[in-house]
Amino acid sequence: MKQPNSNTHTPSPLSVQHLSMRYHHKPVLTDVSFEIPEGKTIAIVGPNGAGKSTLLKGIMGLEPNIEGQASFFGESLDKKRQAIAYVPQREEIDWDFPINVLDVVLMGRHGQLKLWQRPSQLDIDIAEQALKDLKMWDFKNRQISQLSGGQQQRVFLARALAQQATLYLMDEPFAGVDVATEQAIIELFKELKLQGKTIVCVHHDLNTVGEYFDWIIFINARLIAAGPVEEVLTKENLNKTYGGRLSLLNDLTEQMYRTQLNKAHDTD
């Protein structure tokens, strides 16, 4: 499926085509397609349970039951992994894990390392710079359970930074962080944008979305709207996004998954 203008300019950092996802039989996302511009900060916005985090996970291939595809700079995920950094939600991991801050950040370098390779001095330097950028260098030897919520978030961001990616996918980086961390993240966004990098964030705060981001993708089980803030941040789109789902669409899609109708077609 070629985009009509894909030959005229460089391929989009992230282009999603017909992405559908479900949880057991419940449809979470139905037929989402969009393409984002390069060098912008982009927010994925929607109510609770709208499928925002699921969308990011689907894009990164972290969830089963996916239909459709995502391409990165015109290529598949496996070819472009080095260029993509994913920042998951903090709740996902065991903060009691015996590991210190520097080691967590160094994990960001593992994608580039062979099985038997150890992080080199260069890797350590990169990790150091990432930690300094987020003002976490002083904590480098702390065990991660001894950090505050905001500090934990900054460690995650430093790890993504150490990956030296060109596309950053972040799952609610602003959730439950202190003011200092929020400021640090904003600074980081500015810095990354200057370097021409693209940032996609799941975001839930409508008050700040216009201020922090250039672009918005409205999601509520399906794509409502996607585009520059000034164009799509309208009352109409907000109403559609937060105004509840289309019950008939929801019911029938669930029915479709329950009967496994999506697998019953010989052709498509």
């Binding site: 397609s33 399906r222 289309l246 669409l249 029938l252 109708l261 019953a264």
Partner: peptide
């Protein structure tokens, strides 16, 4: 028509979805 009017999908998208849904739509729906 329903998808076009309420979900603002492209004609190609709605066709693909309708290909599936047509088989399970009930009379009341």
């Amino acid at each position: 028509n329903y998808l076009t009017e309420h979900a603002e999908l492209t004609p190609q998208q709605v066709h693909q979805q309708a290909e599936r849904i047509e088989h399970i739509l009930t009379e009341s729906q």
